[in-house]
Simulated scan of single mutants.
Amino acid sequence: MTAGGIACLLWGRRLAAALLPLLLTACHAAPTIEARPAMWLVADDDTQIYLLGTMHALPAGTDWDGGKVADAINKADELMLELSPRELAKAGAIFQTLAPRAAPLAMNARLPAKALAGYRAIEDGEPLGGDGLDDWAVLVLMGQRVAERADLSPADGVEAGLTAAFRGAGKPIRGLESAKAQLMLFETLDPAAQRALLVRAAENSDHAKEEIRAMAAAWSRGDVGALTTIVNEDIDEVPAARKAIITDRNRRWSLWVEQRLGQPGTVLMAVGAGHLVGKDGVPAMLAAEGYEVVRVQ
């Protein structure tokens, strides 16, 4: 298994875009796509923090770094990602350590008939090894397989492009979380919530490729309303997962923004797009605390 990036906060039908930037392999080239994703700005007298919603994996040829995003990249003194490059490099090994079950459990003992059929369709003759893995880990591998088939590649994702740009400019790149902490969000998720997410993902697998492409398209045109619907539709049905994977993390990241405003400088904070939309997205949380949050793209 290689480090790279799961398509983050979608796929459950839609969870993969919320998961984490791990574990995808490169995909085939695609025609050039112009993308102008949503971005916000929070500022005071001597600090500017740009909030850019990302897709961890995208179709090859996606042109996302023009417009106001180009200005933010040029102005920023540092880049803040979910995982720093150093932490991202650890993620595959940590996944392999955490993912195995204490004792194997056959997938046909976990999934009802419709979900089992969906799971087998995703395998399509190439077994995922789910019997030996925790439910959350099976969901991760399913998301990986679907993203690959949708021709999404982490090499063309926003984090990869930003990392190259900031490294090239000699600017620091930091992370909001460690790889282990991010994976432990899933490892420690209530077993019933894990199973509910897995069943929903498998039952709706026949639409997964189209839906992950729809999310990428909504992100590309900066359609916050569509993103909110896509991201929230299924995870709202599993409140424990929503709290752990989205709401609690957004609260921690909002606090980071508030604290960072106490230091001068310009920061580009780039996290999965699903974390920046909706009533418990980072911009909404900051606005609720009295900060002026301006959408700049």
Rank of each mutant, 00 (worst) to 15 (best):
P21A: 10
M215A: 14
N250Y: 13
A201M: 11
R149Q: 12
P31Q: 14
V296W: 07
L51P: 01
G66M: 09
R249K: 12
E159S: 00
L141E: 02
L10N: 11
R200Q: 12
R213G: 05
L162P: 03
V231G: 00
Y50G: 01
I230V: 13
G132K: 05
G4T: 06
W40F: 11
T228C: 13
W219I: 03
G168N: 13
R13D: 09
M107R: 14
L81P: 00
R13I: 01
G125A: 12
I173A: 02
D248T: 08
D234P: 02
A18W: 04
N74C: 10
L128G: 06
P100I: 02
A35F: 03
V158C: 01
E34G: 09
M184Q: 15
L15N: 08
A30S: 15
K180T: 14
G12S: 15
K171N: 05
G262V: 15
A208W: 05
L15E: 06
D236S: 14
M215E: 13
G281N: 09
V69C: 03
P127V: 15
L9H: 07
T97L: 12
R174F: 07
L88T: 01
D151W: 08
E148M: 02
V199E: 14
A160Q: 06
H56F: 09
E210D: 13
L152Q: 02
G290Y: 08
H207T: 13
M142R: 09
E203M: 04
G157E: 00
N250Q: 15
V42Q: 07
E159D: 04
N232F: 00
H275F: 04
A288V: 03
V224N: 11
A16H: 03
L268I: 12
A103S: 14
M142S: 06
T62I: 00
W256K: 11
E159G: 00
K171Y: 07
G53W: 09
G4S: 07
L197M: 14
L276K: 03
R260M: 15
V294T: 15
L23D: 03
A284E: 13
Q194A: 09
I94E: 05
G281C: 08
R101P: 02
R252I: 04
G175F: 02
R120G: 04
R110M: 10
G278E: 10
P172I: 08
Q263E: 15
L105F: 11
A155M: 00
G281P: 01
R295H: 06
Q182W: 04
E292I: 05
L58W: 02
G161I: 05
R149V: 02
M55K: 05
I49P: 03
D156P: 01
Y50V: 06
P191K: 10
A43R: 10
P104C: 10
A7P: 07
G265T: 11
L23N: 03
T188A: 11
E87Q: 04
V293H: 09
E123K: 10
F95E: 00
V158I: 11
G272I: 04
G170S: 12
A91K: 01
A76D: 14
P31M: 13
P100Y: 00
E292K: 06
A30I: 10
L189V: 05
